[in-house]
Simulated scan of single mutants.
Amino acid sequence: MNRTLVVTNDFPPRQGGIQTFVAALLERRPPESLVVLASRSPGWEEHDAALPYPVVRRPTAMLLPTPATGRVAAELARRHGCDTAFFGAAAPLGLIAPALRAAGVRRLVGATHGHETGWVALPGSRQLLQRIAGQLDVLTYISEYTRDRLAPALAGRTRLAQLSPGVDVERFTPGVDGTAVRRRHGLGEAPVVVCVSRLVARKGQDVLVRGWPRVLERHPDARLLLVGGGPAEAALRRAVADRGLQHSVVLTGAVPFGELPAHYAAGDVFAMPCRTRRAGLDVEGLGMVFLEAAACGLPVVAGTSGGAPETVREGVTGHVVEPRSPDAVAAALVGLLDDPDRARAMGAAGRAWVEQRWSWTTIAATFADLLEGPAQH
C-alpha cells in the first residue's frame, strides 16, 4: 500500500481552519496508509490516543525546517516505508523535502491555504516559496484566485493542482433544526440574515450593520444574527448601539464548532460581504462559510474578496456584491427577503451544488489522486 508521511504544524487539537482541513483530509484516507509528524499543542496526548494512525510529536510548539526535523522525518519515512509525503502547509516545512527524497520518498505534495498570495508579493517570502516549490512534485491551491496569484511568482517550478477544503454535507444540511438558536436569541418567526465568521474587518460585519437600517425600512421585523467572536466585537457592539439597532441585531459571541450548523439553520439568508484589505495582503482565500451555508439550504450573499466569488453561482445560489457599499449589500438582502420562494430555490440549488462539487467525498478523491500520481522529479 502507498504510505504517506504527513509533516505539519497544523494539526488538532490546535484549533484553526488549516488544522481542520488537514485533519479532515486524513480522516478520509486508509489509516494504515498514514504516519504523522507534528508539533505539540495542549491536549495532544489524549487526542492522538484516539486516532487510528500513528502520530509522532516533536517536543516543540512549532516545527521548523531544521536539519534535526529533516532527520526525524527521514527516519520516520524509512521506518514506515513511506513513498509519499504531504506537507500540511508547504511553507516553511517544505524546505526539508530533499531529506525526504534522499530517504526514498518518491512523491512530495505541499498545500497552500490562501495567505501565501500575500507572501508572493514580498521578495523574501516569494523566494522562499519558489525554493520550496522547486522541491515538490505538486503544490496545491484552494481557489482559482489563489492560483492566479501564485502561478506567475512560481514560474513553472512545480505542478499546481486545486485542493479546496470540503464541506461535511452530513453535518451541514437543510435538515438541521435552528429553533433552539432562534429561541435563545429571541428571534421568534422573524426573517433572519445570518453571518457566521470571526469578527474581523475583512469579513464585513461592519458593512452589514451600516446597511441594516435600509433592510429594516423594507422588513421592519427582520433580524441580523452575527455569529462568532473576534477583535472587532467591541466596535461592532458600539456601532449597533450608536444606530439604535440593539433590538434587531444580535451578536452571539464565539460559538463551538458543533453548534454552527444550528446557527446557520436559524437564518433565512446568509451574508458575509468580505473585502480585500491592506493592498491585497488581507484577502479571503476561498470562504468555506458560504459553502457551509449553502449546504444548509441558504441563499448566500458574498463579497468580492479573493476566492469568495468562486463559492457562489451568481443568480443561482446567491449573489456577489460590492462589499464596501452598504447600499449594495442591503439591496441584495432586501431582494432575497422580498421573495422567499426565490430565496428557497437558491438555497436548494446551493445544496445540490455543494453535494456535487464541494463535499468531502469529492475532495478526498482529489487528494488521493494527488498522493498516488507519478513523481515529477
Rank of each mutant, 00 (worst) to 15 (best):
F87I: 08
G315C: 06
D83S: 14
V194A: 12
V120I: 14
A293Y: 08
E170I: 01
W360Y: 10
S41G: 10
L5Q: 08
L34Y: 06
E259V: 00
R126T: 08
T84N: 06
P31G: 02
G211T: 05
Q127G: 08
E284H: 14
G228T: 10
F11Y: 15
A161K: 09
L136T: 04
P13S: 02
H113C: 02
S39N: 15
A271Y: 07
R342W: 03
A68C: 01
V209G: 09
V283A: 04
D148V: 04
P31C: 03
V227K: 14
A254V: 03
G166F: 07
V334T: 13
L236N: 12
L337E: 07
V312Y: 07
G335W: 09
E310G: 13
A271F: 06
G297L: 01
G94H: 06
L128M: 13
R28P: 00
R157H: 12
G253Q: 06
D338R: 09
G156M: 13
L336R: 03
P191W: 10
V22D: 10
C195Y: 00
P256F: 01
G81Q: 04
A239C: 03
V316D: 01
A155K: 05
V120L: 03
A111P: 00
E355N: 02
A332M: 09
V109H: 02
V6I: 15
R184N: 01
G228M: 13
P273G: 10
P191K: 10
A24D: 14
M288W: 00
V6W: 01
L150M: 05
V300I: 12
R278M: 12
D369T: 14
K203H: 09
A153F: 06
L226E: 13
V181I: 14
V215K: 04
R78C: 00
A151K: 07
A161Q: 13
V249E: 10
R182M: 11
I96S: 09
G315L: 02
A180T: 11
G88W: 06
A50N: 05
R223Y: 04
L139E: 03
L226Q: 12
G178Y: 02
A97S: 13
R275M: 12
R131S: 13
H263E: 09
L150D: 07
A232W: 11
A308C: 07
T311I: 12
L251C: 14
G204M: 11
D168H: 11
G347V: 06
R184K: 13
V7K: 04
V200I: 15
V192Q: 10
G306K: 05
A24C: 00
G228N: 11
T362G: 11
D148I: 01
Q205V: 07
A330D: 08
R3M: 02
P92A: 13
L337K: 07
H263K: 11
E27V: 00
P65A: 07
D168C: 11
I363P: 02
G230C: 08
M346H: 04
D148E: 15
E170C: 00
R357K: 12
Y141P: 05
P256I: 07
G318C: 05
D48G: 08
P165K: 09
P273N: 06
P374C: 00
V35E: 12
G110M: 02
T276Q: 14
A23K: 06
S143M: 05
G43T: 05
P256D: 11
V196E: 10
A345H: 08
T140I: 03
G124H: 09
A308R: 04
T362Y: 00
T60P: 08
D339T: 10
